[in-house]
Design a protein around this nucleic acid. Sequence first.
DNA 1: TCGCTGTATGCTGCATACAGCATTCTTGAT
DNA 2: ATCAAGAATGCTGTATGCAGCATACAGCGA
Lengths: 229, 229
Amino acid sequence: MEDALEIEAGLPLDDHRPIVRHNLHDAIVGRIRDMITEGVLPAGSRVHEGNLGRDLGVSRTPLREALKYLASEGLIELSPGRGAIVRKFSPKDVRDALTVLGALEALAGRLACEAATEADIREIRAMHDRMLELYARRDRLSYFKLNQAIHSAMLRISRNDALADVHGVLQARLKRIRYIGNEGPDKWAGAVEDHEAMMTALESRDGDALANALSRHMKRTWERVKDAL
Amino acid sequence: MEDALEIEAGLPLDDHRPIVRHNLHDAIVGRIRDMITEGVLPAGSRVHEGNLGRDLGVSRTPLREALKYLASEGLIELSPGRGAIVRKFSPKDVRDALTVLGALEALAGRLACEAATEADIREIRAMHDRMLELYARRDRLSYFKLNQAIHSAMLRISRNDALADVHGVLQARLKRIRYIGNEGPDKWAGAVEDHEAMMTALESRDGDALANALSRHMKRTWERVKDAL
DNA sequence: TCGCTGTATGCTGCATACAGCATTCTTGAT
DNA sequence: ATCAAGAATGCTGTATGCAGCATACAGCGA
């Protein structure tokens, strides 16, 4: 779960090294997720069991199991008798998912303000400050990773596993979109402002304010990514 | 999706007839979901690939694929090297899921008040009226099925697929709980009241009122089921 | 030239076989 | 009698083979 919300940084894209042999299923699932995020498997492209299996160094059986798993997550689409394709998200799909994510994070914010420990909040504050440094240095990729981590942490300290679950599923669907969405400096500044408001609200345990901040942040995210679709 | 939210009525539980050979994957997934809902596969029990495959008349390969699929939905838990067990939900799990479902249905209600057509609303009104008849007749199972169908329809007319998706996943997890939760007459009457309020709000397209009604309904659902855990 | 049909290719879907590991039972020793 | 160690059983995990079907291309007819 934690892992699913993280961008694995700029993997070198040489995705032809054989897979580790421990916990093969999780390894395959993770690798395919990465390949989708990085564009190695483009949205809408067919996933050829034979070729992909050869590339990853595994047989078709565990690969097919991984595809079924990812299909249930909504990252892969299965057509009976016609194989698997990487699911393509329409602008409406993205907007819908962001709408739901906004509601989920708003709920998480409210719950977090009640359930979080002081240590939880200090931890997020530390991440937030580190993120500001990365913003000052304009280190986009590291900023992005830490940003995702902060949102994951917010879900974690809300202490609601079901909430974190469904949030993770939708987050995973948008990972590719966000990965390629390189917004301009003005929009980036807006995102940082949102995060400031979130931190303030969390530290004063103001549930409504935090919910509003997270909601607004998600709406602005849509503004940032919608042109890239 | 539609199917996943429906209780397949009182299946005779003779789950040893062979499975239909068309679209085997979906058939197996659906059958296992039913077996979990009906208690044929009790929560916490191990799922023996050999036995279950023999019972269903399929080999282990498609069965394992179905189990992976259900694991991604959160109905099955996989321990590497130790097989699959039917996931057991703690009272906190149920409460958490209901909390999220409340937020999701509230959002759906708001969206539905904007996006629904008049025909959509008339359709739900018709289902609602039929449900009242079933309540008057104290036809529990049919009432229950129609109740689920109404909630599904509410999600459908909100015109947000991502929302319907995650709602369906959480709904599926609680299906067994609700299946066994036979509340008393007073609580049943309360649920019917909630539905009256929902219908009124929807027909006047009052998003806030509908969201509140759905939220309250979900909180009451928790009150109804929590003692059965 | 366009459309339809037949055929061939190659992929998917499923079953089965085998290897590796977890669990359990048995046996021996303390 | 109890515990530990080893062996046997049986399950899971993976690979491979085969059957069936979808698709694409070529040939034929209108």
